[in-house]
Design a protein around this nucleic acid. Structure first.
Length: 467
RNA sequence: GGCGACGUGGCCAAGUGGUAAGGCAAGGGUCUGCAAAACCCUGAUCACGGGUUCGAAUCCCGUCGUCGCCUCCA
């Protein structure tokens, strides 16, 4: 099966091949660490986590780089407001973000470079860009000369002429062309600064990513990803810088995720319509957010609402219903039921791969998993034993894992409670035999309040942790 | 104003030429002391208007609507 990927650069789905057989170099733009991250950032991280996991499932060895922008205007501004050291501020939010990623079950990147640790590469690149005529120095500020780059605008589909017309482009006298962008910014007194041939200053935003790619992945990479709000100017400028220097195509595939929306608008700090990852995780488990992402297509906008959230929660529960144990007293299911279960396992695996191969169609992949869940539940209802369910259940767990979903969550609460709950069930069974319904209902209700779900059947009762 | 994306049942959403996956919700049923869960059954002709085609949600044109980018942004 061939994987096909939508490439922003060509605006179409393309067959996925890598520079080096069996290996993928993946660069994803990470956050600027000046404030708490919101679930829009989480969505992007989840999308690329799913992509990475699927690539690994396909047998690729993935070298995954995600950067932290830990020096820039906003960090300095915020640090001043808080009367704090900018590096300390960045460090705090970097650590916090790392923790969020772990909480969301996002695999750690192979490398997490930071802008402040790439200075020598950045300065070297800027210097070479100047010497080759792609950039110029104006009193300590260095700008990229967009008119020198013949195919500037190829990623975002813009032409320089179009952008000048009608747009509000700030007039900056120091620039030769309004669209020229900063490679190096001179430092004002008191600002963090690094020594450079053009005086003390700090890198512009775009050059750091170019530098980190070069250092950690090389001149050419397979996939470059990020939110679609980065297409212009950020990724456009990365291409301009890198390709001007190397003379070779930078990333083979540009992959961009759609924006998370809240009340019809992009979730963002400037609009103030955001939910932080911290807030979300204090109320729900990370897999709920992952489920929301999986049930949509990564390139389209995803709107966040209480209803969508509730749907994702229920969908996750349904998926998990597939791994519940056999019913008490099961004697085995009829042969035809077991046969159709076996064939559904095969069918699901096949449909799962087919869907994911089509530009990571996670919604389609989920549909295949839900069909497996139904087949498993049918078999269980028909009396299948744990042994008879094992293969199907393992496949469900395996494929869900490719999407990063964790179905087995029981252990997160103390296992020590198990024997005591069993004891309560035994006592309650006695009560039920004696038809003391009121009392047995009290036990069930109180246990539910404690997070334990009791389900009665003809053959006896079972329990599980509430999700 | 320029560039781009999208518009499928109450909600989310797959499907991009051959008569509409899946999930949530809703209604009916099986099971059950009750409940819950699970299982079974029930619903859309695909924004609107033209066109191409034997045949279109799926291709083309137009209209309307929503969103993103054009300034920092996942």
């Amino acid at each position: 099966m061939v994987l096909r990927v939508y490439n922003t650069l060509t605006r179409q789905k393309e067959e996925f091949t890598t520079l080096v057989p069996g290996r993928v170099s993946l660069y994803v733009c990470g956050p600027t660490v000046y404030d708490k991250a919101h679930i829009g950032h989480a969505m992007s991280a989840l999308v690329f986590d799913i992509i990475r996991r699927y690539l690994e499932f396909k047998g690729y060895e993935v070298r995954h780089v995600m950067n932290y922008t830990d020096v820039d205007d906003k960090i300095i501004l915020r640090a001043n407001e808080l009367n704090m050291d900018p590096f300390e501020l960045a460090e705090r939010y970097t650590r916090e973000y790392d923790q969020h990623l772990a909480d969301l079950n996002i695999l750690p990147a192979t490398v997490n470079p930071r802008a402040t640790q790439e200075m020598s590469t950045i300065i070297d690149m800027v210097q070479r860009l100047i010497s080759q005529g792609y950039a110029y120095n104006k009193n300590g500020d260095v700008y990229f000369r967009v008119t020198r780059d013949a195919d500037y605008g190829k990623l975002s589909g813009r032409r320089l002429e179009d952008m000048q017309a009608g747009a509000r482009i700030s007039v900056d006298e120091r620039k030769e062309h309004p669209m020229d962008f900063a490679l190096w910014k001179s430092a004002k007194p008191g600002e963090p600064a690094w020594e450079s041939p053009w005086g003390p200053g700090r890198p512009g935003w775009h050059i750091e990513c170019s530098a980190m790619n070069l250092t950690h992945l090389g001149e050419q990479i397979d996939i470059h990803g990020g939110g679609n709000d980065l297409i212009f100017p950020h990724h456009e400028n990365e291409i301009a810088q890198t390709e001007s220097l190397t003379g070779r195509p930078f990333a083979r595939y540009w992959i961009h995720n759609g924006m998370l929306q809240l009340s019809g608008e992009k979730m963002s700090k400037s609009l103030g319509n955001l939910i932080t990852i911290e807030e979300f995780l204090s109320l729900y488990e990370g897999d709920v957010l992952r489920m929301m992402v999986l049930n949509s297509s990564y390139r389209n906008p995803l709107s966040y609402s209480d209803e969508i959230l509730a749907q994702a929660k229920r969908a996750l529960e349904r998926l998990r219903s597939g791994i519940r144990p056999a019913l008490p007293g099961s004697q085995g299911a009829p042969a035809d039921v077991l046969e159709s279960l076996t064939s559904q396992v095969k069918k699901t695996a096949q449909e799962f791969v087919e869907a994911m191969d089509d530009d990571f169609n996670t919604a389609g992949a989920l549909a295949a998993l839900f069909e497996l869940v139904r087949a498993i539940n049918q078999a269980r209802d028909a009396g299948a034993t744990d042994d008879q369910l094992a293969d199907a259940r393992n496949e469900l767990i395996r494929l869900s894992g490719v999407l990063g979903l964790r179905l087995q969550v029981e252990s997160r609460r103390g296992e020590q409670a198990g024997p005591f709950i069993e004891l309560l069930l035994e006592v309650r069974n006695e009560l039920r035999k004696q038809k003391l319904w009121a009392l047995s209902d009290v036990v069930r209700d109180r246990l539910l309040e404690l997070g334990v779900v009791i389900e009665d059947s003809r053959e006896g009762s079972s329990w599980r942790w509430k999700e």
